[in-house]
Nucleic acid binder design. Sequence first.
DNA 1: AAGGACAGGGATAAAATTTTCCCTACCTGA
DNA 2: TCAGGTAGGGAAAATTTTATCCCTGTCCTT
Lengths: 121, 121
Amino acid sequence: MYEKKIPKDFSCGFTVLMEIIGGKWKSYLLFLINNGVRRPSDLHRMVPTATPRVLNLQLKELEFHGIIYKKIYAELPPHVEYYLTAFGESLLPVINAMDEWGTGYKDEFQQLMQKKQEVGV
Amino acid sequence: MYEKKIPKDFSCGFTVLMEIIGGKWKSYLLFLINNGVRRPSDLHRMVPTATPRVLNLQLKELEFHGIIYKKIYAELPPHVEYYLTAFGESLLPVINAMDEWGTGYKDEFQQLMQKKQEVGV
DNA sequence: AAGGACAGGGATAAAATTTTCCCTACCTGA
DNA sequence: TCAGGTAGGGAAAATTTTATCCCTGTCCTT
C-alpha cells in the first residue's frame, strides 16, 4: 500500500474509523457485499465507474483491517467470494447512521453545491 | 475552494456526509467548538500541528455547509467566534457513534499497523 | 484458433487534499 | 518604535489518494 510521510494520530477513534472506511468506494463495497454481491467481477459490474484495479485495492484494505474476508475456491476458472466478518457487521449501524444523516441533508446540500457552481462561473 | 474534475455522486447520503466532515481537521474542529473553543487563534492553539491557514480553510467549508456559523464582532483588534448551528449539533451523535466504534477497535488497529510497518521494513 | 470471462498486479499518471511560505492591516503594550 | 496579537488570503509545493494502461495465467465457448 502507500507509505505515508505525515504520520496520523490513531489515538482518536474517529481517525481510526476514517482510515478504515474513508476510501472512495469502501462503504459502497461493504453495502454491496452485505447485500449478497460477493464476487469481484460482480462487484465491478455494480460499480462500472471504478476500474477493477481500484476496487481490488480497496477490497484488499478492507480485508487487511478485518472488515471482510475472502473465500478462495481452489477452482479453475478462479472463484473468489467476499463476506463481511462479524466485526465488519458491527460497522453497519454506524455506516447507516452516517448515510441517514447525509440523506436528510441531501437536497439542501445539492442546492448549495449548485449555487456554488453558479457563483464559480 | 477546489474545482473538482471528477464529479461526485451526491445522491448518496454517505457521500454527502463525507464531503462535509471528511476533511482532515473538521471533526476535531467541531469537537473543539462544541466544547467552547470559539476563536480562530484559540483553535489554533489547540491544534498547533495544523497551520492557521489550514484550519481557516476547513472552517470556511464547515460554515459554507451550515454546520457552524461565524459571529464577527465589529471591534479592533478583530474578534471572531464560531458556534455550531442547530444543524451542526445534529451531527454530534453521528460523529460520536463513529468515534465510539473506532475507539473500540483502536488497540487492535494499532497492532495491525505496527505489523504492517515491520513487514514493510 | 480466437475471443471472452475469471482474478490479480506493476508502473505511472492524474486528481484531490493538505501544507508551506509569505503577504495585508490594525491595535495594544513594553 | 518594535514586537506580538488579532483575522485572513494568494500562490505554489508537497503529500495522499484514485485512476489509467497494460500485462500474467487458465479455462470455457464458439
